[in-house]
Amino acid sequence: MFIQTEETPNPATLKFLPGKVVMVSGTADFPTFESSRRAPLAQKIFSIQDVRNVFFGSDFISVTKNETSSWAVLKPSILGSIMEYFMVHDHVSVREEEGFSSHEELSEIEQEIKELLETRVRPAVAMDGGDIVFQRFENGIVYLQMQGACSGCPSSSATLKSGIENMLKHYIPEIEEVRAI
């Protein structure tokens, strides 16, 4: 198995491309070792010292390291973990969190926001090894969560304000501001 790697705009995050489907649907972000209990591959990667975040996209895995560690040291261990996992599994499985419900009612504006994010924003941020998730819309403000390489990236706030906020305001006049949470 050959796994490619790509740099991302976030120097602390590296994108791993195993050449196969990683997540059958959706994405999964693991900002802590504790959260990785829901996914065996994330837990295995987190067991490598200095790994700070693991993110699964449709066909990639983004790993964020501590600032003091070196990719030259971490990369071989991460590649080995990914390779071992995919020798046995077809894709990444993630257990649902208890009490999690994705069947919430969305207003018409919220549905429009989610549609714009899904069709125009998420493909672009996925290319950089990240994701952006709609959290809520209230009092004219859209709250978004940056994940993967986008979380903590130096250029993510500029992308959020200059790109995403302007685009959403253009299509949905009720939007006054976009904030990261």
Score class of each variant (00 low, 15 high):
Val22Phe: 04
Gly130Ser: 04
Leu41Gly: 03
Asp59Asn: 14
Met83Val: 09
Phe137Lys: 01
Gln43His: 15
Met146Ile: 09
Glu67Trp: 07
Ser156Gln: 05
Gly140Glu: 00
Ile45Cys: 10
Gln43Ala: 14
Phe33Ile: 01
Glu110Leu: 01
Leu14Ile: 09
Phe56Asn: 00
Asp131Glu: 02
Glu7Gly: 10
Thr13Ala: 15
Leu17Glu: 06
Met23Thr: 06
Val94Ile: 06
Val24Lys: 10
Arg37Ser: 13
Ser47Phe: 14
Leu116Val: 00
Val51Ala: 05
Ile61Thr: 10
Glu67Asn: 14
Glu98Val: 06
Ser155Asn: 11
Met127Glu: 01
Gly163Met: 11
Gly80Glu: 11
Ser157Arg: 09
Lys114Val: 09
Ser102Trp: 02
Arg136His: 01
Gly140Ile: 10
Glu108Arg: 07
Ala180Val: 14
Phe134Thr: 01
Leu14Met: 15
Thr68Ser: 12
Ser162Glu: 11
Glu34Asn: 08
Ile172Asp: 09
Cys153Tyr: 02
Tyr143Lys: 09
Tyr171Gly: 05
Pro173Tyr: 15
Met167Pro: 13
Val54Trp: 07
Thr8Tyr: 07
Met23Phe: 01
Glu84Gly: 02
Ala42Ile: 03
Val142Arg: 00
Ile109Trp: 02
Glu7Ile: 09
Ile164Arg: 01
Gly57Trp: 01
Ser77Met: 12
Leu14Tyr: 11
Glu115Lys: 12
Gln4Glu: 12
Ala28Leu: 07
Tyr85Thr: 07
Ile181Pro: 06
Ala72Val: 13
Val73Met: 13
Ser102Cys: 02
Ser151Arg: 11
Ala124Pro: 00
Glu105Asp: 03
Ser47Tyr: 14
Thr159Lys: 09
Glu138Ala: 05
Lys44Asn: 14
Met146Leu: 15
Glu6Tyr: 08
Cys153Ile: 08
Leu117Met: 07
Glu97Asn: 03
His91Ser: 14
Glu96Pro: 13
His89Ser: 08
Glu6Cys: 07
Val24Cys: 05
Val133Pro: 00
Gly19Gln: 08
Lys114Glu: 10
Ile175Tyr: 06
Glu105Pro: 04
Glu118Ala: 13
Glu177Cys: 14
Phe60Leu: 13
Met146Cys: 12
Gln43Lys: 15
Gly80Ile: 02
Ile45Lys: 03
Val22Arg: 02
Met87Phe: 05
Ser62His: 14
Ser93Thr: 07
Val73Thr: 12
Lys114Asp: 08
Met23Tyr: 02
Pro31Tyr: 10
Gly19His: 03
Gly163Ala: 12
Ser156Thr: 12
Val24Asn: 08
Glu138Asn: 03
Ser35Ile: 04
Glu176Met: 15
Thr32Val: 05
Asp29Gln: 12
Ile181Tyr: 14
Val94Cys: 04
Gly19Glu: 10
Gly152Asp: 10
Gln135Phe: 05
Leu144Gly: 05
Glu108Tyr: 08
Phe33Val: 01
Glu98Cys: 00
Thr68Lys: 15
Cys150Trp: 07
Ser47Asp: 14
Phe56Lys: 02
Thr32Asp: 10
Arg136Glu: 06
Glu6Val: 06
Arg120Phe: 05
Glu104Thr: 06
Ser47Leu: 06
Pro9Ile: 07
Phe60Met: 13
Glu138Ile: 12
Lys15Trp: 08
Ser151Asp: 13
Ile78Tyr: 06
Ser93Ala: 05
Glu108Thr: 02
Leu160Glu: 02
Asp59Thr: 15
Glu110Trp: 02
Gly19Asn: 11
Phe30Pro: 03
Phe60Arg: 00
Leu41Ile: 11
Gln49His: 12
Phe16Ser: 05
Pro123Asp: 01
Pro154Phe: 11
Ser36Asn: 13
Val88Cys: 03
Asp50Tyr: 11
